[in-house]
Design a protein around this nucleic acid. Structure first.
Lengths: 192, 192
DNA sequence: ACATTGAGTGAGTGCACACTCACTACTAGC
DNA sequence: GCTAGTAGTGAGTGTGCACTCACTCAATGT
């Protein structure tokens, strides 16, 4: 912050947009779409609310940009895990699943953004379209990288959504037997 | 209802509470928790906003009551489907799945309330607790009625969450190949 | 030196929201 | 009829929100 103060006191609009998206991910993932005020995002990004609205003309567009960032993060995780698994000769889809679990445990905003994104999508067709775009790429990447049969891909994403839902309502595996059952990890591969 | 119309122009608080919950289900399921104003719920129920707050001291409590109603609706569907399947000698868990799909296609507010409930739960511990209570009963009922092994129960709910997520972002099966893949119904029973 | 452009903001605006208060009208029991 | 209690509301209140406007200041090219 002070390092560049001599030579540059202003940042480019793109740098600010980047910072805004990061702040938006944090803030939206904490409080959801409708309940998050733009003032708070601007504060978290260290700029004025007025400038936020110059960089993203509506709150909705900022949210959609944030969804895009979630997509990128997940796709990168999938690809890395798949690459690793192919090198190790282990089942690719399992590796991607483990990668996802690790990702959301290190960066919970990913999971929370997906949950809030679903809810927001149910009320806003533009956000729904952004979500579909995100899913399209996730599914296609999972297919391409794993070459798994359709039914396994379907199970893969179904389990992902179950994990998200349970995490959103703060279910802890140790709580009760019904929770344990749902959190249990299925055997590593389906047919061996 | 009309039987007492002559002698009674006021309704009991319990009747109003009931009407309010029904209105809340409609309205919350349309617009989500945070984005739904209590004024709108009151209007839909045909009472003043002031009276709404006498019957439910906070918006949150009304939402939690609505979640309870969702739970009842789903449990009833599960039980009916299970009963029917046992009579017909068909697999119980499949019947419950079909029952759920039929339920949400006739009464989409059920699905939408679940989605919005997850998002709201991620931001409010009381709503999270209400959601867990709902899930506890759903899982226990599914277990008791179907006697299916844990892994199948887990798959059952995972598929349910996948269906909910896809529906929330308005995915139509016919749209694209990734969508088709995810919407495809797995073969009726796992091992025959 | 100066003009042009882009970064950045303080101070609004108008509206919508959760929740409250003081009050009226109905009804059941005596 | 009267009274005690419950059903029910009109009209706020204070706050918070998405979004705007008019403006300042820094950087860069000539």
């Amino acid at each position: 912050m002070e390092a560049t103060a001599k030579t540059r006191s202003l940042q480019t609009a793109d740098e600010r947009r980047e910072a805004l998206i990061v702040a938006a991910l944090r803030t939206f993932s904490d409080r959801g779409y409708a309940a998050t005020p733009t003032t708070e995002i601007a504060k978290a990004a260290g700029i004025s609310q007025a400038y936020l609205f110059r960089l993203f003309p509506t709150k909705q567009e900022l949210f959609i940009a944030a969804i895009g960032r979630v997509r990128e993060r997940i796709l990168a995780t999938f690809s890395t895990a798949a690459h690793q698994a192919r090198n190790d000769g282990t089942p690719v889809l399992d590796a991607m699943g483990n990668g996802y679990v690790e990702l959301v445990s290190n960066e919970p905003w990913v999971l929370r953004m997906l949950v809030h994104g679903s809810s927001a999508a149910a009320c806003d067709p533009d956000i729904a379209a952004a979500n579909r775009a995100c899913w399209k790429q996730m599914v296609e990447t999972a297919q391409r990288e794993s070459q798994a049969p359709d039914e396994e891909i379907q199970r893969f994403f179904a389990m992902g959504m179950l994990i998200n839902t349970l995490a959103a309502m703060d279910v802890r595996e140790s709580d009760e037997s019904w929770a344990k059952l749902l959190c249990e990890k299925p055997p590593p591969s389906i047919d061996n």
